[in-house]
Nucleic acid binder design. Structure first.
Lengths: 358, 358
DNA sequence: TTGTAAGCGTTATCAC
DNA sequence: GTGATAACGCTTACAA
């Protein structure tokens, strides 16, 4: 008995405005959505409608609009975040996506997953009847390509935010990893380093296994490191190249330890993650080596904790906020039927004390 | 000419199933949504419908469902994240919200904001015609209470994730900050500390200004610190209480420096953030003080970077993932018309090397 | 046990 | 210039 039928409708829709003004719904619709076409309408009517809408605090029901137009105004966002703790890249990416989605009046369906199984549980929710497209971020996972292509072939735009594209059909908002390695190394050279070590993902590294397609190579940063050294005519002794087992802190610690064990002479380390850089820093300091005076360090991701290290850490940013925004724009474009292709952004060096010139 | 009218409809809806089976839409609807009521339907029909749905890969159009039922299946999430860099509490909260929202088939409209102005730009988007409710997280901001109450009075459930509730009408998923301070202090006592310093938000701290209502006090952790000391019969000399200017790294550094300047004798520090703890740690190490042997440290938030500090930092977690999930559940309950009230979760101590017994 | 019909709020087509 | 009408896909009385 809590729904008396004779009370005035509570929700304010086009109908309410039309009734109050004694005109037709369609006219109100045309005026309020700015689709008067060639014909136009009477100035006074337009004003009246606008005022009434304001007075009643009218907001378009986007659900009804979507139902009518066949769009959903929902973007599925799938984020694989395993192993990136502390880097904040996931938060950066999601906040970029959220910000741009808001501008396009898109809602988000977010899945944070750690395993392919968790991802697959989500798959049935992602469908033409529920979302307009999919953005896939975080670590790439070749295993999931089938599902992605399946969505794609059902007409669902799929945009990835990985280093490079998984498949030519899926536009990617990438970043040039060779350039990441090159810029980092270049920076240390510019700061005066001449014997620069590099932590590279070893052949058996767990993270390497995720990349089993040929679409992406974990050796690109290493390639950039080599390029930078070559450009400056610096040598690259084998003793300065360390294979590590992953991107995490423990791997970074192994890395410096290896340099110590080899009694290698080095005045800089280009790490492939901030965790590496932090581990290297802590180990160096514990062994009474001065950073940056004796050894300069640079990592990757520009993680927040770079600022809280015992010597603030320099780092190369992968620009995830901006890439999140771009992914939404690409998705919207593709949903409009435009032909879009992969883009690539430039990494940015954030210099801090760990690489200060001495 | 790309929409030939005589081709079969591409979208699979109830209608398509009904037509294929030569039965009525409503029957299909009832079967598929499990609302057959008392009467039921023929076993064979039910099976046929189920099979057809599977065959055609039918998914309910949640938009249409929502339009019909008057719900939106959208939750607005507003996150004030100013000044919490690196703690990951925002990401924890959002991922908790996202996970629970997925289970309830709710979409998210996310606003990350830094200033009240950014928040207010978003306000018009939040409306009965667009969302079913609002979750407000991150730093509390008393200035925004008017808008929140306005939503509430328009029948929109508003749930906050703050320390304590902003207003009795707005259910909050809180945490007992007295307990945060008490557990942290208790932990150091248990580990053998007897002269425990505490960093407290000073009377002119910027962060304090956000709390101008009487709904929350930044002194609760301090109160917990006092309680714990009292419980153990430990003294609390004024020299061990340091007023700092905020939660950030710089403030933490000021804090330890003050202890040094006073030549205070201390064997433990209860900080009110991990940034404080990190700053204290780095400063202590730089001054050749051994952590944890001479001084034990504990922070708050259990930030990822606790693991990457030169001595891994102990910390008290504010359990944001779980609180995000709970907020969604409260919101769903309130949207169902249930009467819900604020809840409070227990903080959890994560012990690491910085507070190891010596 | 099954079907009919009204309606959610919007947009688009076409007629007046 | 303006309005009637159908349709988007679904739910739910109510009727058969």
């Amino acid at each position: 008995m809590n729904k008396p039928k004779n009370l005035p409708r509570r929700t304010v829709g086009l109908r309410r405005i039309a009734e109050d003004l004694g005109i037709s719904i369609s006219l109100v619709s045309k005026v309020l959505s700015g689709k008067l076409g060639t014909s136009g309408a009477q100035e006074s009517t337009i004003r009246a409608i606008r005022e009434k809408a304001l007075e009643l605090d009218y907001r378009k029901n986007r659900l009804a609009e979507a139902l009518r137009t066949g769009r959903q105004n929902v973007i599925a966002v799938c984020v694989h975040r395993h192993g990136e703790v502390g880097s904040d890249i996931v938060e950066e990416m999601v906040s970029g996506i959220a910000a741009e989605a808001a501008e396009f009046h898109q809602r988000l369906m977010i899945l944070y997953y750690n395993t392919p199984e968790e991802f697959r549980e989500f798959v049935p929710e992602v469908h033409r009847n529920a979302v307009d497209g999919v953005i896939l971020g975080g670590l790439p996972h070749a295993e999931l390509l089938d599902e992605l292509m399946d969505w794609h072939s059902h007409g669902l735009p799929v945009i990835t935010i990985h280093d490079g594209q998984l498949n030519p059909a899926l536009p990617n908002v990438g970043i040039d990893q060779v350039e990441v390695g090159r810029l980092a190394t270049r920076h240390l050279i510019d700061q005066g380093c001449r014997h620069i070590a590099h932590f590279r993902l070893g052949p058996n590294a767990e993270s390497r296994l995720a990349f089993k397609g040929d679409h992406m190579s974990p050796d690109q940063r290493y390639e950039g490191y080599r390029q930078a050294l070559r450009e400056s005519g610096l040598s690259r002794p084998a003793s300065l190249l360390v294979d590590v087992s992953g991107y995490n802190y423990a791997a970074g610690r192994e890395g410096v330890q290896a340099l110590f064990d080899r009694k290698a002479r080095f005045d800089g380390i280009v790490a492939i993650s901030d965790q590496h850089a932090a581990a290297a820093l802590n180990h160096l300091v514990a062994n009474r080596r001065q950073v940056p005076q004796e050894v300069k360090l640079i990592g990757v991701d520009n993680s927040p904790f770079c600022q809280f290290a015992i010597v603030p850490l320099s780092s190369v940013s992968q620009e995830f906020t901006s890439r999140g925004r771009q992914a939404v724009r690409l998705l919207m474009a593709e949903a409009q039927g435009e032909k879009v292709s992969s883009v690539c952004v430039e990494p940015v060096v954030y210099a801090r004390e760990s690489s200060a010139a001495s």
